[in-house]
Design a protein around this nucleic acid. Structure first.
Length: 107
DNA sequence: GCAATGACGCTCT
DNA sequence: CAGAGCGCCATTG
Protein backbone atom coordinates (compact mmCIF):
# COMPACT_ATOMS: atom_id res chain seq x y z
CA UNK A 1 0.00 0.00 0.00
CA UNK A 2 2.83 2.37 -0.30
CA UNK A 3 2.94 2.89 -4.01
CA UNK A 4 3.07 6.59 -3.20
CA UNK A 5 6.82 6.28 -3.32
CA UNK A 6 6.79 5.23 -6.95
CA UNK A 7 4.11 7.77 -7.68
CA UNK A 8 6.14 10.61 -6.18
CA UNK A 9 9.00 9.49 -8.42
CA UNK A 10 6.83 9.72 -11.50
CA UNK A 11 5.47 13.09 -10.50
CA UNK A 12 9.00 14.36 -10.02
CA UNK A 13 9.91 13.31 -13.54
CA UNK A 14 6.81 14.83 -15.06
CA UNK A 15 7.55 17.99 -13.20
CA UNK A 16 10.99 18.24 -14.82
CA UNK A 17 9.52 18.11 -18.30
CA UNK A 18 10.39 21.46 -19.90
CA UNK A 19 7.57 23.61 -21.15
CA UNK A 20 6.78 23.34 -24.83
CA UNK A 21 7.79 19.70 -24.84
CA UNK A 22 6.04 16.38 -24.30
CA UNK A 23 7.24 13.07 -22.89
CA UNK A 24 5.84 9.61 -23.45
CA UNK A 25 4.72 7.35 -20.62
CA UNK A 26 7.52 4.95 -21.39
CA UNK A 27 10.03 7.74 -21.25
CA UNK A 28 8.71 9.02 -17.94
CA UNK A 29 8.65 5.49 -16.57
CA UNK A 30 12.24 4.93 -17.57
CA UNK A 31 13.31 8.29 -16.16
CA UNK A 32 11.45 7.48 -12.95
CA UNK A 33 13.37 4.25 -12.60
CA UNK A 34 10.50 2.02 -13.70
CA UNK A 35 11.54 0.63 -17.08
CA UNK A 36 8.73 -1.17 -18.81
CA UNK A 37 6.08 0.07 -16.42
CA UNK A 38 4.66 2.76 -18.72
CA UNK A 39 1.19 1.56 -17.79
CA UNK A 40 1.75 2.30 -14.14
CA UNK A 41 2.80 5.81 -15.08
CA UNK A 42 -0.66 6.26 -16.50
CA UNK A 43 -2.07 4.89 -13.26
CA UNK A 44 -0.07 7.35 -11.25
CA UNK A 45 -1.24 10.27 -13.34
CA UNK A 46 -4.81 9.07 -13.08
CA UNK A 47 -4.46 8.98 -9.31
CA UNK A 48 -3.16 12.50 -9.58
CA UNK A 49 -6.74 13.72 -9.30
CA UNK A 50 -6.09 17.34 -10.08
CA UNK A 51 -4.97 19.98 -7.67
CA UNK A 52 -1.46 18.62 -7.89
CA UNK A 53 1.27 20.80 -9.33
CA UNK A 54 2.15 18.26 -11.98
CA UNK A 55 2.02 19.11 -15.69
CA UNK A 56 0.39 15.78 -16.51
CA UNK A 57 -0.84 17.33 -19.75
CA UNK A 58 2.74 17.14 -21.00
CA UNK A 59 2.62 13.37 -20.87
CA UNK A 60 1.31 11.58 -23.94
CA UNK A 61 1.54 8.06 -25.34
CA UNK A 62 4.14 6.77 -27.77
CA UNK A 63 1.73 7.46 -30.61
CA UNK A 64 2.18 11.15 -29.87
CA UNK A 65 -1.50 11.33 -28.98
CA UNK A 66 -3.44 12.02 -25.82
CA UNK A 67 -4.64 8.81 -24.25
CA UNK A 68 -8.37 8.32 -23.84
CA UNK A 69 -9.42 9.27 -20.34
CA UNK A 70 -12.49 8.51 -18.31
CA UNK A 71 -13.83 12.00 -18.83
CA UNK A 72 -14.28 12.78 -22.55
CA UNK A 73 -13.36 16.35 -23.33
CA UNK A 74 -10.54 16.41 -20.85
CA UNK A 75 -8.16 15.09 -23.47
CA UNK A 76 -9.23 18.02 -25.61
CA UNK A 77 -8.21 20.32 -22.78
CA UNK A 78 -4.82 18.62 -22.62
CA UNK A 79 -4.28 19.22 -26.31
CA UNK A 80 -5.22 22.85 -25.93
CA UNK A 81 -2.78 23.27 -23.05
CA UNK A 82 0.03 21.78 -25.10
CA UNK A 83 -0.69 24.02 -28.05
CA UNK A 84 -0.68 26.95 -25.68
CA UNK A 85 2.83 25.95 -24.57
CA UNK A 86 4.08 25.92 -28.10
CA UNK A 87 3.54 22.29 -28.98
CA UNK A 88 2.26 21.91 -32.51
CA UNK A 89 -0.28 19.23 -33.28
CA UNK A 90 -0.14 17.60 -36.68
CA UNK A 91 -3.47 16.18 -37.66
CA UNK A 92 -4.31 15.87 -33.99
CA UNK A 93 -0.97 14.22 -33.44
CA UNK A 94 2.26 15.57 -31.96
CA UNK A 95 5.60 15.22 -33.73
CA UNK A 96 7.50 13.39 -31.03
CA UNK A 97 10.81 13.70 -32.91
CA UNK A 98 10.17 17.40 -32.87
CA UNK A 99 8.44 18.11 -29.54
CA UNK A 100 9.40 14.93 -27.76
CA UNK A 101 11.22 15.63 -24.53
CA UNK A 102 14.92 15.00 -24.84
CA UNK A 103 16.60 15.04 -21.45
CA UNK A 104 19.86 14.26 -23.22
CA UNK A 105 22.04 17.18 -24.24
CA UNK A 106 21.86 15.60 -27.64
CA UNK A 107 20.45 17.91 -30.08
C1' DG B 1 -4.83 -14.38 -2.20
C1' DC B 2 -7.07 -14.63 -6.89
C1' DA B 3 -9.10 -12.39 -10.91
C1' DA B 4 -10.09 -8.38 -13.86
C1' DT B 5 -8.93 -3.85 -15.45
C1' DG B 6 -6.00 -0.16 -17.20
C1' DA B 7 -3.77 7.97 -18.88
C1' DC B 8 0.78 1.98 -22.56
C1' DG B 9 4.28 -0.07 -25.94
C1' DC B 10 5.71 -2.83 -29.58
C1' DT B 11 5.08 -5.88 -33.75
C1' DC B 12 2.50 -7.55 -37.49
C1' DT B 13 -0.80 -6.91 -41.30
C1' DC C 1 1.73 5.51 -43.08
C1' DA C 2 -2.40 3.66 -40.54
C1' DG C 3 -4.98 0.30 -38.00
C1' DA C 4 -5.51 -3.87 -35.12
C1' DG C 5 -3.82 -7.46 -31.85
C1' DC C 6 -0.91 -9.28 -28.12
C1' DG C 7 2.03 -8.73 -24.03
C1' DC C 8 3.96 -6.83 -19.41
C1' DC C 9 3.20 -5.09 -14.71
C1' DA C 10 0.99 -2.77 -10.91
C1' DT C 11 -3.30 -1.31 -8.71
C1' DT C 12 -8.05 -2.16 -7.39
C1' DG C 13 -12.13 -5.09 -6.18
Amino acid sequence: MAPTDAYARIYAVVRRIPRGRVATYGQVAEAAGLPGRARQVGYALHALAGGTAVPWHRVVNAAGRVSARAMPGDELRQQQLLEREGVGFEGGRISLPRFGWRRRGAR
